[in-house]
Amino acid sequence: MTARSRQARIKMGKKADLYRIGGVDLPWDPELDLDKPKPTPLYPAFQIPKPKPLTEEEKSQVAHFRQLRESIKNGPLYTVLGDNVRVGKPETSAAAAFNPFEGMPKYSQRYTKKKRMIPKLDTRPYVLNFFPKELWSTIDPTATETNGVISTDTTGKSLQIAGYEKDAAMSEDEVDVKEERDPDDEDLPEGEEVDDEFDDEEDGGDYNAEQYFDDGGDDAGDDYDAGGDEGGGGYFE
């Protein structure tokens, strides 16, 4: 019997039966107003400090920043790694990565922005001297240790600069779309572009849900092979 209940019983006197059940004192006070001493709120009301709206100058700064970021993202250096890049780890199969809601091949997918897994380095000239020698072959396959000063073979390569790169990117995309149908794409060691599910045509596979899918386009009747083992064949959201 706790001190409180005893006290309560004494206080209430005759109404003592309220405080006991079967002659045993209740260990709590049944008339206790639980709302009286308010518990401290878990999340007390808090006035969130609101920052001042951006000034015109800041707005233009941010606009410049976002524009630059956008052009970097549209440029050849921005990369998105898939899940399948880890060396020494079994790849997630394309079936496991398949998104049943968004992953169906659609005609409009040809317009989606390409996601690069690996930066496209051969679009511009480089100053090889500023790179360690072990990277020279990566940057410019034609470079040797002797012609190291400046990449001499700059024919057809020019810097893509903002303001113009829109045209460049567009034309590049067109090329990519054409290349998508090239059969020799499969020779590449690792997917050049993540987004090449259109190439994922391969025979085999016992059951194929997409057998019945007909998009009416070039790929009509082509099966999507869920078990395809192409490196970059993962669906990417």
Binding site: I72, T154, I161
Partner: peptide
């Protein structure tokens, strides 16, 4: 902005790019 985009660049290449851009676009 272009230099930030490119990291570093040769003057020659930069000028060429501008020339090319000039003849290509209506900027």
């Amino acid at each position: 902005a272009n230099l930030l985009l490119l990291g570093h660049a040769r003057v020659g290449d930069l000028v060429q790019a501008y020339k090319a851009g000039q003849s290509r676009s209506t900027h």
